[in-house]
Each structure stands twice: as C-alpha cells, then as structure tokens.
C-alpha cells in the first residue's frame, strides 16, 4: 500500500508532533472511503440486471435496453473521499495550534526564514490531498473501465 513508502512520516509534520493518531485516522478514512465507494458495484449490478430479463430460464438482453450513464451510476458515490479531504484540511489547523499548545514554539517558528512555518503545518496535508486525489482519479478510471467492460456495447447510452 502506498502508505508504506513513507518511512519516516515525522518529517512531514511539525517538529515533535505526535502524528500517530492523525496518521491512523487518515489511513482509516482512506480505507473506509474506498470501501464506501464499492457501493457503486451494487448499483452497477442492479443496472446490469435491468438490462436482462429471464425467458425460459435463460438470460436474454432486452431489446432497446439502455444502461444508465456511468456518471449516473457513480453519482452519490463521489463523496466517499470527502471526509478524508476535510480531515486533511483540518489537520493544517491542528498543526498550527500545536505551536501554541504547552510551550509557545510559534515564537520560534515565526522567526525562521522562508516558509518553514507554512511548510510544517501543511506539508503532510498537501501530500495527503495529492495522494487522495490520485486515488480518486485512479478509482474513477477503474470503475469507469469496469463499466465499459460489463455493459454490453449495444446498451451504452
């Protein structure tokens, strides 16, 4: 899995930040999100079945049967990664407020040249968002491909 490419997550987070919980939550939301998206297959299954009817115990394709478009099928399932996106954005706020917690390390961060403060708050989230977007796109094309594989050519809208 793509997560294990990152040998040392610590460097994407603020110095000394206890990132384990966020890391776990992100992984969890990624998996759950992907899991929810599998509901697409339920809709696809239903759509495919509607193209056929049983005659004499044999499956026969309905004449003039037209399947819903891919977009219609995937509708509603787009949102499966939204919680993850929102959490990744929320993390940026968590990271920023970390510098005010306990000690005021914000005073150190604000004295650093360059965009060190911004980077340390946003790096993990930006990376996460990119990976999520890539996953989203990959799944989109995967599901799309499966759609075209499974729906008979005649029934394509």
């Amino acid at each position: 899995m793509v997560f294990y490419k990152f040998k040392d997550p610590a460097k994407y987070f603020p110095p000394g930040y206890a990132y384990e919980n966020e890391w776990k939550t992100v992984k969890f939301l990624w998996i759950v999100g992907a899991g929810f998206s599998l509901q697409y297959f339920a809709d696809l299954y239903t759509a495919v079945n509607q193209l056929y009817s049983y005659q004499n115990n044999r499956r026969v394709l309905n004449i003039h049967a037209v399947a819903p478009t891919f977009l219609e099928l995937i509708a509603g399932h787009w949102i499966f990664y939204i919680p993850l996106f929102l959490f990744l954005i929320l993390m940026i706020a968590f990271h920023y407020f970390y510098y005010y917690n306990n000690t005021k390390s914000i005073y150190l961060m604000r004295r650093l040249p360059g965009a060190v403060l911004l980077k340390s708050c946003a790096q993990a989230s930006v990376l996460g968002i990119c990976i999520t977007l890539i996953s989203w796109i990959v799944l989109y094309f995967l599901y799309c491909g499966i759609y075209f594989m499974v729906i008979p050519k005649k029934c394509l809208p």
Binding site: P15, G16, Y17, A18, N102, T103, K104, S105, I106, Y107, L108
Partner: peptide
C-alpha cells in the same frame, strides 16, 4: 521567553 518557545517533545 518565560512562556518557553522550545518543542517539549524533543
């Protein structure tokens, strides 16, 4: 500063 500006976890 008396509020401390270091990282407690480091």
């Amino acid at each position: 500063t008396c509020e401390h500006s270091f990282f407690s976890n480091l």
